[in-house]
């Protein structure tokens, strides 16, 4: 005999709190939109362009606070605009490192002479693309000068203006196409009212996730788009399970008021909704704790998205059906 955390016959009157839930969601959406326009997303170099260099200390050594100051001072004098140096991991502790982010360059006009002198030869092409390459090579040279030549070169990412522009487009397009395809799928499988409910829930999830990223200022990069799409898939998945039950109950209880049918369906699927979110969250928490710094933003987005997605399928997607109303005669629609 297994465990039962959620009793068999729950009768939580979800529909009674729908107005409160709409209110809470509306506040969340307003807050997200305001945060997005006032604070804005902290775009990573995938979307903003520029470069990131991460170095680790020489084997057996570790970086000190002085090292970081040294790097900040030296990179600040290169005429490369905003250059941000951060330590990762514990300085003086285990896997520490220094991450330098260089903003997107448009020309080499203001570059310090030492950058121009040591510029790699024979770089051809667009001025901005070339400037980015030179700036990256220059900062790398400065890091080696300041920290010694046996530092570990962990990561160098350079994204020029052409590619970053394309990634913004591709990312936006991907989210919109995914949402549109979901809409079409639901419309084909159910009825248009369900489509409306599912889409409102999806857009709700996406907006709140973007809001979360605006407020926390976590790096918003390409992997977050992947997370957003997965959240869209997951939230849809959750919503579909509830809708599937709504459809079944609508057929079974032809005379029951819609509100009751909706409440019943949510309660029927409640234990599944919670348990699946639970197992997914378990896996994600493992990823968050052990998956390393590279995946942290992605996992944070996913964890948030699962919570929001679960909430929205119960409190948003289903109550919307109440607002739009559902055709009660399913006899000819489905076999």
């Amino acid at each position: 005999m297994g465990l039962k955390l959620i009793p068999d016959n729950t009768h939580v009157p979800f529909m009674n709190v729908r107005m409160a839930a709409f209110g809470v969601s509306l506040l969340g959406i307003i807050a997200s939109v305001v945060a997005f326009f006032v604070i804005g997303l902290n775009f990573g170099i995938d979307f903003r362009g520029g470069s990131v260099i991460e170095v680790g200390p020489a084997p057996g050594e570790s970086f000190t606070i002085e090292n970081l100051t040294q790097v900040r001072n030296a990179t600040g004098e290169l005429g490369l605009g905003s250059v941000d140096a951060q330590e990762i991991g514990a300085i003086g502790g285990g896997e520490d490192g220094i991450v330098v982010t260089i903003e997107l360059q448009t020309s080499t006009e203001d570059f310090a002479q030492r950058c121009l002198d040591n510029a790699p030869q024979g770089i051809a092409g667009d001025e901005a693309e070339v400037a980015n390459q030179i700036a990256t090579a220059c900062v790398k040279g400065v890091l080696i000068e300041e920290l010694g030549s046996d530092i570990e070169e962990r990561r160098i990412d350079v994204v020029g203006p052409t590619v970053s522009g394309e990634l913004v487009q591709a990312g936006t397009r991907a989210v919109i196409i995914a949402v549109a395809l979901m809409l079409i799928y639901i419309w084909l499988r159910f009825k248009w009212q369900f489509s409306v409910g599912a889409i409102v829930a999806l857009v709700h999830d996406v907006i709140l996730t973007i809001g979360m990223f605006s407020i926390t200022q976590l790096d918003f990069d390409l992997s977050i788009i992947a997370a957003l799409l997965t959240i869209v898939g997951y939230s849809m998945n959750d919503t579909v399970v509830v809708y599937d039950r709504v459809r079944e109950n609508l057929r079974k209880f032809k005379k029951k008021p819609l509100t009751e049918v909706l409440d019943l369906s949510i309660n029927d699927t409640l234990s599944r909704t919670i348990i699946t979110s639970g197992t997914t969250l378990l896996a994600l928490i493992a990823l968050f704790v052990f998956g390393g710094a590279v995946l942290r933003g992605f996992t944070a987005a996913m964890i948030w998205g699962i919570l929001i997605g679960t909430y929205s399928s119960i409190f948003i997607a289903s109550p919307i059906l109440q607002l739009t109303g559902v055709d009660r005669d399913w006899s000819k629609a489905e076999s």
Partner: peptide, 14 residues
């Protein structure tokens, strides 16, 4: 002319 418009380098250690 060939120009590099995107670069991603990861060290073996990382």
């Amino acid at each position: 002319p060939l120009q590099t418009i995107e670069q991603r380098t990861v060290g073996a250690g990382l």
